[in-house]
Design a protein around this nucleic acid. Structure first.
Length: 636
RNA sequence: CGGGACGUAGCGCAGCCUGGUAGCGCAUCUGCUUUGGGAGCAGAGGGCCGCCGGUUCGAAUCCGGCCGUCCCGACCA
C-alpha cells in the first residue's frame, strides 16, 4: 500500500530516471534528494525542541516524497472517529489486531505528545530512564503479580527456557532498580519516568490506538521517605498532568477513581471529555467533586419510618408468571420500581454473596468487591443462581435466603417492599426489611444515578463521558513491601519506601484529541500536537512563479521555527484542500493563480474555516502571527 | 472467554441462495485535456475468491474444520 495519492509529480521524475529499482526511483531528482536529507535533520531538530540553531537548512517537508497516503474511503473495520481518521490521514496502519505501524505523520504527532510530556515531567523534577520491554519472570513472581495479573500479561520463554514477560507496566523493574541503588533517606525523594512501548494482551483490542495491545506509554514512579513526601510527589504529578493536557489543548477533568489491579490507596484518572468516551464520569456543578461512576459515592438516604410498616401483615406470595425484570414486575404489580428490592447473586473469591438494592438503582460491582476485599467478582451464572436460590434468575429475594446478604443503603429507605420469592414465577409483597430479612450490613453499593446529589456538597451532579488518558496512583508500600525496597532513615532505621505511579497513554492521548477535535472533513489538531503547523498549497504546480513563491514562503516560515508541509504534488486543488483538512493541519496558505497575479495569497484557519486574503509580501508575518496565536491557546 | 457477523484486486463492495468465462467503484500505471474543494477521455496492470479437507464431471458458490478480522458484554493508559 504505497502512496495512493502521494505524488504524480514524483512519478514523472521517476520515469525520466529510468525503470530499474523502486528504491532507486525514489532518489531520482536532485531537488528531492536534497529535500529528503534535510527533512530528517530539520524535522528532528524542530521536534526535539529548542531554538533553531544557525545554519540554513530546509525543514520544509514536501508532500510529493512524503509517506502520508490519504484515503477517501476507510477500511470497514474502523469504528471510532479517531481510528478512522488516523487511517484515512495516513498516520497509522494495522499490522495485527491491536498492533500498528506509525507512518511519518503519525509519528510526528506522537513525538509532539512525548515532547510535551517530557518537558513537564522534567519541570516537575522527574528524571527520564528507559527500562526493558522484556522482563524476567522472577521479578513478577516476587511481587506476586505473575499469578495475579492474568492473561493480559504476555509470557514466553527464551532459548534456555527461562521465563519472561512483555512488561505491561513497570513497578517491579523500577522498584528493583531503586532498591539496589537507594539506601539512604538522603537520596529521596526520587521520581523516575520513561516513555516506552508497553504490551498488554488485551482480551479485545479495539478502537485503533485507543485500546491497542502494543502502545506507547509514559510511566513514572515516585519514591518517598514517608506518606507526607508521597503526597507531595502525587500533588506535583497531578499538577504536571494538568499542565500537560492543557498544553495539548484538551478539555479534560481529573476524577477520583478506583485503583484496580495496580493497587494502592488513592487515585485520579485524567479524562478527556468526549461523547465517544468509554468511561462515564460524574462531576458536581457546584464544587470540585468529580469521579468515575465506578468510584462515585452515593449518599445514604434517610431510613424509612418504621411506623409505616407496623400495620403490614406477613409477606404475601403473588404469582408473577414470566415477569423477571424490574420493569416487568413493577408494572405487573402496579408498584414503584423504587420499592422493589432487587437481589443479585455474585460469585467472588471470598464466596458467594447476594446483594440487595432498590429496584431504581444498579449494583456497583466494584463497591461490592472492595467491601468484601475480594480479588474478583462476577454475576453468578444461571445454574449457580438456581442452585443457591432454588429459582431461575429474576426470582431471587432475601427472605429465607441462606447465604451472605449485603444491602445497599437504598434498601433501608424501603418501608414495605416487594421482592423475588426464590421460586419460579412468584414474588413476595409486603416485605419489611429488618423484620423479614436482615442483611449483615448496609453500605454504599450502588452506581450513582441521574438525579443524585453531590456527595460533598449536595449540588447537582452532571454526567458525561470521557477517555482515560492518564492515571495517577498513590501506591503506598504495596510494592516496596513485596520487593523489600527499604532505606535507612536519619536514625539508622530500616523503613519502607513509599511509592506512587503515574501513567499517560501517548497514542491514546493523540486519539482522544481527535475524538474531541474533528469535523466532517477530518481532524482538527490543536497546534501543539499537529503533525505540521501550516500547509502550503500551490494550486497549480505548472505555474513556476507561483510555485517558486510558495517555496520561498515555506522556507521563510520554516526559518522562523514554523513546521511546514509544502503540498508540491501535481494534484488538483480539491485533492490538496481535502487532504490538508483531513490531516488536520491548523493553518493552510493557498497560492492561487488569480490571487497571485494580484500579489495576494490566502490563509485559512482549519478550525473556523475563516479565510484571509493577504498580500504576498506580508504573508510570512501574518502566518507567523496566526501560528503564535494558536500556540498561545495551548498555554499551560 | 461467551454472543453476533464478516473474509473476493491496495481500499469499499457485488457475485454465493439456484455450482460452469471473477465483476463494479475508488486507487495505481500510460497518453492527452484539465487546474480553487476528492476532474474528463482513451488505454493498461493487478486475484492461490483467507487456509485445509470433503461432495461433485466441475466449487468463490454446497458441507466440515482451522485461521484471521470486526461488532456487543466482563479489564485498562
Amino acid at each position: 500500500m504505497r502512496g495512493q495519492r502521494a505524488g504524480r509529480g514524483a512519478g514523472g521524475r521517476r520515469r525520466r530516471g529510468g525503470r530499474q529499482g523502486r528504491g532507486a526511483d525514489l532518489r531520482q531528482g536532485r531537488d528531492r534528494q536534497k529535500g529528503e536529507g534535510e527533512r530528517y535533520r530539520g524535522g528532528g531538530r524542530t521536534l526535539c525542541g529548542g531554538p533553531r540553531r544557525g545554519k540554513k537548512e530546509s525543514a520544509v517537508i514536501r508532500y510529493s516524497g512524503y509517506l502520508m497516503p490519504t484515503a477517501k474511503e476507510t477500511p470497514s473495520d474502523a469504528e471510532v472517529v479517531s481510528h478512522r481518521l488516523m487511517l484515512r490521514a495516513g498516520m497509522i496502519r494495522k499490522v495485527a489486531s491491536g498492533i500498528y505501524n506509525y507512518l511519518p505523520a503519525g509519528l510526528r504527532v506522537l513525538r509532539k505528545v512525548e515532547r510535551i510530556i517530557r518537558e513537564e515531567m522534567d519541570r516537575a523534577g522527574a528524571q527520564e530512564v528507559l527500562m526493558p520491554a522484556v522482563v524476567p519472570a522472577e521479578l513478577w513472581k516476587e511481587s506476586g503479580r505473575w499469578e495475579a495479573y492474568g492473561k493480559e500479561l504476555l509470557r514466553f520463554r527464551d532459548r534456555a527456557d527461562r521465563e519472561f514477560c512483555l512488561g505491561p507496566t513497570h513497578e517491579e523493574v523500577i522498584t528493583d532498580l531503586v532498591r539496589r541503588e537507594v539506601r539512604s533517606y538522603r537520596r529521596l525523594p526520587l521520581n523516575l519516568y520513561q516513555i516506552q512501548d508497553k504490551f498488554r494482551d488485551e482480551i479485545r483490542p479495539r478502537f485503533g490506538l485507543m485500546r491497542g495491545r502494543e502502545f506507547l506509554m509514559k510511566d513514572a514512579y515516585s519514591f518517598d521517605a514517608d506518606e507526607e513526601g508521597a503526597a507531595e510527589s502525587y500533588r506535583k504529578m497531578y499538577e504536571a498532568y494538568c499542565r500537560i493536557f492543557r498544553r495539548m489543548g484538551l478539555s479534560f477533568r481529573a476524577v477520583e477513581a478506583d485503583t484496580g489491579a495496580i493497587g494502592g490507596t488513592f487515585s485520579h484518572e485524567f479524562m478527556v471529555i468526549a461523547d465517544s468516551g468509554e468511561d462515564a464520569i460524574v462531576s458536581c456543578e457546584r464544587c470540585a467533586y468529580a469521579a468515575n461512576v465506578e468510584k462515585a459515592e452515593c449518599e445514604a438516604p434517610d431510613a424509612a419510618n418504621p411506623a409505616f410498616a407496623i400495620s403490614v401483615g406477613p409477606p404475601r406470595r403473588v404469582s408473577t408468571p414470566g415477569k423477571r425484570t424490574i420493569g416487568e414486575v413493577s408494572s405487573f404489580l402496579g408498584i414503584d420500581p423504587g420499592s422493589l428490592i432487587k437481589t443479585l447473586v455474585f460469585e467472588t473469591d471470598k464466596g458467594d454473596v447476594a446483594v440487595l438494592v432498590s429496584g431504581r438503582y444498579e449494583v456497583n460491582e466494584i463497591k461490592v468487591k472492595n467491601l468484601l476485599g475480594a480479588d474478583w467478582i462476577r454475576l453468578a451464572a444461571e445454574d449457580r443462581v438456581r442452585a443457591l436460590t432454588g429459582a431461575p434468575s429474576g426470582y431471587a429475594g432475601p427472605v429465607g435466603l441462606k447465604m451472605r446478604l449485603l444491602a445497599d443503603h437504598s434498601v433501608r429507605a424501603i418501608a414495605v417492599g416487594a421482592t423475588g420469592a426464590n421460586e419460579k414465577d412468584a414474588h413476595l409483597a409486603d416485605v419489611v426489611p429488618g423484620r423479614d430479612f436482615s442483611p449483615e450490613t448496609f453500605a454504599d453499593l450502588r452506581l450513582v444515578a441521574e438525579g443524585d446529589g453531590c456527595p460533598r456538597c449536595r449540588g447537582a451532579l452532571r454526567f458525561s463521558r470521557g477517555i482515560e488518558v492518564g492515571h495517577v496512583f498513590r501506591l503506598g508500600t504495596k510494592y516496596s513491601k513485596t520487593l523489600s525496597a527499604t532505606y535507612l532513615d536519619a536514625g539508622g532505621k530500616d523503613r519502607l519506601i513509599v511509592m506512587g505511579c503515574y501513567g499517560i497513554g501517548v497514542g491514546r492521548t493523540a486519539a482522544a484529541a481527535i475524538e474531541q477535535h474533528h469535523d466532517a472533513d477530518g481532524i482538527i489538531w490543536p497546534i501543539s500536537i499537529a503533525p505540521f503547523e501550516t500547509a502550503i498549497v500551490p494550486v497549480n504546480m505548472k505555474h513556476e512563479g507561483l510555485v517558486r513563491e510558495a517555496e520561498r514562503v515555506g522556507e521563510e516560515l520554516s526559518g522562523r521555527g514554523i513546521e511546514v508541509l509544502l503540498d508540491d504534488r501535481e494534484e488538483r486543488p480539491g485533492i490538496k484542500f481535502k487532504d490538508a483538512d483531513l490531516c488536520g493541519i491548523p493553518l493552510r496558505v493557498t497560492f492561487g493563480e488569480k490571487n497571485f497575479a494580484e500579489g495576494f495569497a490566502e490563509i485559512r484557519d482549519r478550525k473556523t474555516g475563516e479565510t484571509e486574503r493577504v498580500e504576498v509580501t506580508r504573508i510570512v508575518d501574518r502566518v507567523a502571527a496566526a501560528v503564535e496565536a494558536k500556540r498561545r491557546e495551548c498555554a499551560p
